[in-house]
């Protein structure tokens, strides 16, 4: 077997092993990857920074555990910023596996806000978690009329009208914007029904797989900001000046991408060398 044949017939398990090694190595190395903040991420940050204390914001945590690595850091960073700005945060999940994670994010950030900002967000007064309801399209449409239609009670079974911060709020008209962290098809529904039907100001935090598909909505102004994958999360962590897991993960991303580029290069070199040798063999024959 020639060298170029070996390159294109390399057992994929060697690729997996190499990738694993190069993802693990940076865990034990101390270095920093500079993160450049893109406009679509900064737009979200600037919008939230421009809000007044007491303004309402709705944060959707619409992802399953399989998107946790990418979207959890975004959720933490966004809610941290909201609490630091003393905004009233309404959280919900339209993903059937999202309720536990959403509750975890809100609880953790509330705890850390007490520690780092000396201000303790109070459940029901500063934030509320509505929980999960099925059929996201109808939930989004229902909230446009009244939050109480899809969510007569919050996640813990308390009537919404019993919660002080929900007494003054009826529908999207009282919400400054919706920031939706999304790992599935709910994002389409937010654009179509949230923005299309009710003109909700909308921004997304999306998994890397989805991000490229949603840039047209950003360019058309249907969404005002977009965080794509772990890079977007790292950018936001940098903006809120709280480097976290996403910023840390950029080290592994860089190493992994170099490995993948090298393997793609090797395979292409092998392919073109093989084609040249076959062409030459054809000429000889």
């Amino acid at each position: 077997m020639t060298f170029h044949e070996r390159m294109i017939t390399l057992d994929r398990r060697w690729i997996f092993l190499t990738l694993a090694v190069f993802v693990i190595i940076p865990f034990f190395l101390e270095f920093d990857i500079p993160v450049t903040v893109s406009k679509e991420v900064r737009d979200i940050y600037d919008f939230i920074e421009g809000l007044e204390a007491g303004d309402y914001i709705l944060v959707g945590i619409d992802y399953d555990p399989n998107a946790m690595a990418e979207l959890h850091p975004m959720s933490y960073a966004i809610i941290k910023q909201c609490f630091a700005k003393k905004l009233k945060v309404i959280t919900l999940t339209l993903s059937q596996y999202g309720a536990g994670m959403a509750e975890q994010v809100v609880r953790d950030v509330a705890d850390s806000t007490r520690i780092y900002h000396g201000f303790e967000p109070v459940y029901g007064e500063d934030y509320v978690f509505l929980g999960y309801r099925p059929y996201y399209a109808f939930v989004i449409l229902g909230m446009g009329r009244d939050f109480r239609i899809p969510f007569p009670q919050d996640y813990y079974g308390t009537d919404l009208d019993s919660l002080p911060m929900m007494r003054g709020i009826r529908n999207y008209d009282q919400v400054e914007c919706v920031i939706d962290m999304n790992g599935g098809t709910v994002a389409d529904a937010w654009v179509s029904y949230g923005n299309g039907r009710y003109n909700v100001k909308l921004a997304f935090g999306l998994t890397g797989v989805m991000a490229a598909d949603f840039y047209p909505f950003y360019q058309s102004g249907q969404i005002f900001g977009l965080m794509g994958g772990m890079k977007g999360a790292a950018e936001y962590e940098q903006l809120v000046d709280k480097p976290g897991p996403a910023k840390e993960a950029m080290k592994m991303q860089v190493f992994a991408h170099i490995v993948i580029i090298v393997f793609i290069g090797m395979a292409n070199i092998g392919f073109f060398l093989g084609r040249r040798s076959r062409t030459k063999a054809g000429e000889v024959l």
Binding site: I24, N66, M68, E70, V209, A212, D213, K231, M252, Q253
Partner: peptide, 26 residues
């Protein structure tokens, strides 16, 4: 070029999942 951009983002997404799991393990 569009597919390339999507693929690039997909690679980043998949590596992110790997990083997430390895972070959990370590």
């Amino acid at each position: 070029i569009t597919f390339g951009a999507s693929f690039g983002y997909t690679v980043m997404g998949r590596i992110s999942l790997l990083v997430g799991r390895i972070t959990f393990l370590f």
